[in-house]
Each structure stands twice: as C-alpha cells, then as structure tokens.
Simulated assay, not measured.
Amino acid sequence: MHTYRGGTGGEVTDVELLTAHVAGDPHAFRELLTRHQDHLWHVARRTSYSDEDASDALQEGLLSAHRNASKFRRDAAVRSWLHAIVVNACLDRIRRNKSRQAFSLSADNVEEPRDSHDHVEAVDMRMTVDQALALLPPEQRAAVVAVDMEGYPVAEAAIRLGIPVGTVKSRCARARKRLAAELAELGGRGNRS
C-alpha cells in the first residue's frame, strides 16, 4: 500500500493526487477513490433506482473519471468533479433503462424504530417515497435528491450536477410538485386497500 505525503509531511491534496495520476503514478487514482468512495456510493445509490444500477453507474463513472482525468479543470474541487461524473453516469444508465421501472426496497436511510409497527410504517413510507422518486424524470430526480435528500445548497448542487443554479431551482420545483401529487396518489391507493 502506497502512502501519500506532501512536501511538509502533510497529506497530499486531491488535486495533487489527480495530477500524479495523469503523470502516470499507478497508485494515485486508487488513493483518491479511497478518500471519496463512500460519498460517491451514496450519491450513486440515491440517484439510481436500485443497488445494481448504482453499482454499475458508479463503476462507469469512475472509469470515465480515470480516463478523463487530464480534462479536470482546477476551478472546481476534485470531489465535486467526481460527484458530477457519477451523477451523469447514473442519469445515462437511467435513460438506457428507461423501459424498466424499479424502485428500492432498502431501508438504509430509515431510522430504526422503537417497535415493529413503527418499523413497518417507516419501511412503508420509504417504499412510497422511493416509488414516487422513481416516477420523476432523471434530471429532476438528481436535482431534488441533491438538494432535499443530501442537503446541498442550491449553488453547490448546481456545481455538482454541472448545471446552472436556475436550472436546479426549476427542476427541484417541478420535482417537488410532481412528488407531492405522486405521494398523494400513492398514499390514497394505500388507504383504499
């Protein structure tokens, strides 16, 4: 295992690692991924419809980042650059799989309830939200996930998604309106059963 240290013994920056990778260092990109793997997995998982799609999109995105590292512009943080590449890989995969509508049954983000009734309600709510998210167009889903689920400010979400701030705002507004309608519809169906 290679350990990266800066000139003063401190940790090498992400930009330095990316530069080393472009220069041919065989370990630099792996170190960069080690730093950001968890974050990028969560981004892929929240943007995709299933763990399988998230995994595939993450792999595709990282391969793209590896190949296109020389195109990195220093006006953005490396983490934001990687984030945007992974989101775009997820959106590309969603477009390719458009005919397949799936949703996550995972309860990864559901707080552990105190009793089984609460647990069933929490899982049911998560499934309902996932179903509603699955009905959104991919670009709206990515924007609303970044802002409302991941908690990024609109300006940072715009950087991460590689789109203007106004576009993030309009996609979120359209997504929230559609989500409200879909959640009401899905909730109404659940009450009728």
Rank of each mutant, 00 (worst) to 15 (best):
V144S: 01
R96W: 06
Q131L: 10
R100Q: 14
A158R: 03
R93K: 02
E60C: 11
D118R: 12
R126C: 04
L82N: 03
R67N: 02
T47S: 09
L135Q: 11
R74S: 10
A69F: 02
R160N: 05
G166T: 02
R126L: 00
F103N: 10
H83A: 04
V154S: 14
L133Y: 01
D56V: 11
R67M: 00
A134N: 06
M125N: 11
A122R: 11
K98A: 15
A76V: 08
E156D: 11
R141V: 00
S55D: 09
V123T: 08
Y152C: 05
A158S: 14
R95K: 07
K98L: 09
S48P: 03
R141S: 03
P164D: 13
L136T: 07
A134F: 01
G151Q: 05
L63T: 07
R73V: 02
I163K: 10
P137H: 14
Y49G: 01
V120M: 15
A84K: 08
I163F: 11
V86P: 01
V87W: 09
D53I: 12
V145P: 05
A54C: 04
A54V: 00
L62R: 05
A142D: 13
A143Y: 13
K169Q: 12
L135G: 05
Q131R: 01
A157Q: 07
H83Q: 15
Q131K: 10
G61D: 07
A84D: 08
R100M: 14
F103Y: 10
Y152R: 08
A146G: 03
E150P: 04
S116Q: 14
R74K: 15
H83K: 03
L133C: 07
V129D: 03
D53W: 13
E121N: 11
D124W: 11
A157Y: 04
R96M: 06
R79N: 08
A132Q: 00
V144G: 01
N68L: 11
E150G: 12
A77Y: 13
S80Q: 02
V147H: 06
A146S: 15
L135I: 09
K169V: 14
E156T: 10
S106H: 00
A77N: 13
D75I: 15
V123L: 09
A157I: 02
P113C: 07
P153W: 06
S48Y: 02
S104V: 06
A77M: 04
Q59W: 04
L63C: 09
R79T: 07
W81Q: 10
V87D: 05
P138Y: 00
E139K: 15
W41E: 07
V86R: 06
D56P: 04
A44Y: 04
D148G: 05
S99C: 06
R93Y: 07
V144Y: 05
S70D: 08
S48Q: 03
A76L: 15
A65D: 01
H83L: 12
H42D: 09
E139V: 13
V129G: 06
V43L: 08
P138V: 11
L161G: 01
L62K: 03
Y152Q: 13
V123Y: 13
Q140I: 15
L133R: 05
P113R: 14
I85A: 00
G162N: 09
T167V: 14
K71W: 14
S48T: 06
M149Y: 10
G61Y: 09
L135A: 08
R114N: 14
E60T: 06
V144N: 10
N88P: 15
C90T: 00
D51E: 09
W41I: 09
L133I: 00
P164G: 12
E139Y: 02
P153V: 06
